[in-house]
Design a protein around this nucleic acid. Sequence first.
DNA 1: TAATTTGCCTAAAGATGTTAGGCAAATGCA
DNA 2: TGCATTTGCCTAACATCTTTAGGCAAATTA
Lengths: 189, 189
Amino acid sequence: MARAGLTTNRLTRAGAELADEVGFDGVTVSALARRFDVKVASLYSHVKNSQDLRTRIALLALEELADRGAAALAGRAGKDALAAFANVYRDYAREHPGRYAAAQLRLDPEAAAASAGSRHAQMTRAILRGYDLTEPDQTHAVRLLGSVFHGYVSLEAGGAFSHSTPGTQESWERTLDALDALLRNWPAT
Amino acid sequence: MARAGLTTNRLTRAGAELADEVGFDGVTVSALARRFDVKVASLYSHVKNSQDLRTRIALLALEELADRGAAALAGRAGKDALAAFANVYRDYAREHPGRYAAAQLRLDPEAAAASAGSRHAQMTRAILRGYDLTEPDQTHAVRLLGSVFHGYVSLEAGGAFSHSTPGTQESWERTLDALDALLRNWPAT
DNA sequence: TAATTTGCCTAAAGATGTTAGGCAAATGCA
DNA sequence: TGCATTTGCCTAACATCTTTAGGCAAATTA
């Protein structure tokens, strides 16, 4: 009987594609086996269990997102950097809703520490070099930016903004303007 | 055989409690039946299916959140109103993580329109009456506030801020200060 | 080519979701 | 009060998904 050529990596990548097509909740060992035209039990040689598979997809998404963020930041500073980074975030979520949902998976502390999650925080800090913030305000600002990016993108994905005017693109741009203004005029304690 | 006294409402409320205990993903028709010491099929007289149950929990959470928000806003204006509303949001998410997760459930358009979701938008608009914003900036600001609240609360719940200093309470307070400053100095287009 | 490893398979069992149809308790009406 | 109807929970059955154990054949190594 011919072999299907399963691999942990191939399963993870296919799982990510599946997530984008049917949603992260639809990523199931069974569905993935179907996609490879293979019996379900066969996947268990390459992936510990369903949770393991989902965690791998989450880590993949975090890596991809961090890579794109790093590319966007290269050679940019100030508001230019802020906007480029933010757009990467939003575009990724729109292009890859399932992966983006996966990236929100709560990881156990060890996995979280080893993940690309900390690269994000580092990059956000790098953006703030273009503004005049010192600790602890810098950390507060990192958290605020993360909150806005994630919050906006996930509300938008959930359709929260879709039934009112003006369009979400306009609000997004004005939100970035507002963040830039805020970072330039960060209130004293 | 004695009857258990099942009701759509009782199931919904018990489902909300269950969500807070084991997470919204753990809310299952089976688990709920166990909690009432009743056979699974019995629930299907009161709830269409699993999705219906989850939707009802989501609507309950949205109502509760809106009620608390309205209570917090009564008699307040300006930054006071902003902070009170925001704190309600965050406190609710911390006290009721499962319900909060439920409130994030994507509803079909009809359900969404009938939900308390729009009350939130209205209340956020009310907060902005304490600041000097006109349309379309008011809508942009509503969306920004929603993004920050939801983003901060869900990142915090996911543990994103938990392994670094300063504490999340401090960042939260400074975030509210920053939002207040931003709304008072909203950048011109 | 023979020995070993590896990859996918069959089989089986447990959990959840869902539907159909039945019996008994609660309710309404003469 | 007695009977008819409705309602509430049940049993039975089936589909889907997860996971483990053990087997056979293909690929790899010697």
